[in-house]
Structure formats: C-alpha cells, structure tokens
Amino acid sequence: MSKREITEADLQAWVDGRLPGDERAQVEAWLADHPKDAERLEQYRRLNEALHGAYDSVLDEPVPGHFSALVRRTHRPRAMRHAAVVAWCALAGVLGAVGGWQSRDWYARRDVMPSAQMFARQAAVAHAVYSREVRHPVEVGADQEKHLVSWLSKRIGSQLRVPHLGEQGYGLVGGRLLPGTPDERSPIALFMYQDSKGQRLTLYVRTDAAESSETAFRFAQEKSVGVFYWVDQKLGYALSGEVEKDELLRIANAVYKQLNP
C-alpha cells in the first residue's frame, strides 16, 4: 500500500491495536506530523486502560451460584422460567391444563386427597418461579426470621415453624407470601433455602382445609423439579428442589422431624 489518505477509522484502529504492521507504520508516520491528533489518540488509549482499571475487578468476583446452576441445567430443552409462566396461566384457570406437566412416580397411593396432585404442582411452579429470582427471591430475609414466621403465621391462619436445615447443608434465605388458588381460601407461605453452591430448595406450606389427617410422603416430578409433599396437623407441606430424589427425601425427612420433635 503506497501513500493513501489516513482516515479517522484508521486512527481508531491504531488506538485499539487492530492495524497490521505496515498500516500501523503509516499511521505512526502520519501522527508524527499531526501532534494534536497524536495527543488525542494517546488520550483514547489511556481511556481504554482506564476502562480496564475500572471494571476488570468484576472478572475476579465469584460467580453467583444461580448463574452456574443455570448453565449446569443445559440438558433441559427450555429454560424453566418459561414453562413456569405457562403453568401459572394454567393455574389461574386460563388454560385449564397444560401438556407436559404430568405428575408421575407416586411415592404412596394411600390417602390421596382430591387436590393433592394440584398441590404438588403448585408447589413445583412456585419453586420454578421464585428459586430463579436473583434480586427478589424472598420478601422477608432470614435476618428477620422472627418477623417472617409471625407474619406468615398470621396470614395463613396457622402457627408456623420454620425448619433449620444447616445440618443438611442448606441455609434459610427467607420467605414470602403467595396468594391461594381460587379453591383455597388460605394464602401460602413459601420458605426458601440455599446451599453453598446456590442450589435452592423451597418449602411450600398451606393450611389444609380439606382433610386434616396425616398422610405419608408422596413424591411428584414436575419437569426438572422434584416435590415431596405431605399433610401434618392441618398443614400441607411440599418440599421442592432440582436435586436427586434421594437427596430431597433426606431433607424432607429432616423437615418432618424438626416439625414433629
């Protein structure tokens, strides 16, 4: 390339180190005759450095657990959140039924209450929606646990106790109140737990208006969300998580034991 006009694009590319050797030399020769431009480009170059100085520290921050968990789930065909939105519509009676959300693998067949399957499904949907929240996974955090429990107890009309799952590796994140479905008058209390890797579990609790008898643990699988659920002293519980069934059972047992010391 012989003598050609140096364009502003050439100058920008020089700043960014994107020019091949011969073009770089041409620009540098040109800059020698244009000191004002040379100074301007030097400022651009320092701006590049300043940007790295300002933001490179983000690269060293630990990646939040949910992000890693999200890409770990890449064998799933669709992100759960979207399935969850569809399912919420179903629950609101818009669609009535949604294909694909079929419960299976029943753990026990006894004492199946009419709405039991629905209960497990609602718990799975709540889990899918809220366990993916980065900013607002809970309304009241674990730092206000006393307030959380008294508030939710009052709202669902039953005295609640919140299990502690530290021994199982899960810390309490906090909780939130969810509206009850049209056939249930009582709203729902949702407690969220998280392990050190960001894996989340939710415990979904409602006052059980139907039958007050105790039931065995039952298991439902709603897509990638496993749910163990049971009724105990007028309260219906559902523990949901995207973990292996055995692991979930181990934690469900711990929850049950703490609630029935």
């Binding site: 940007l51 300002a54 933001y55 690269l59 990646v63 890409v71």
Partner: peptide, 25 residues
C-alpha cells in the same frame, strides 16, 4: 439430574465473568 456440563454449558459458564464485567460497565 446430572450435574455435569455439556459442551455448551461449559462454554457458557466460562463466558459468565465477561458478561458480568460488560453488564456492570
């Protein structure tokens, strides 16, 4: 559920810090 990363997942995980830096700026 398997915890292993498939190729896409492994790639995506490696890009997260860059995405966060850019998003922060």
């Amino acid at each position: 559920m398997r915890a292993d990363l498939d190729e896409f997942g492994a790639h995506a995980a490696s890009v997260i810090p860059r995405l966060r830096r850019y998003a922060r700026a």
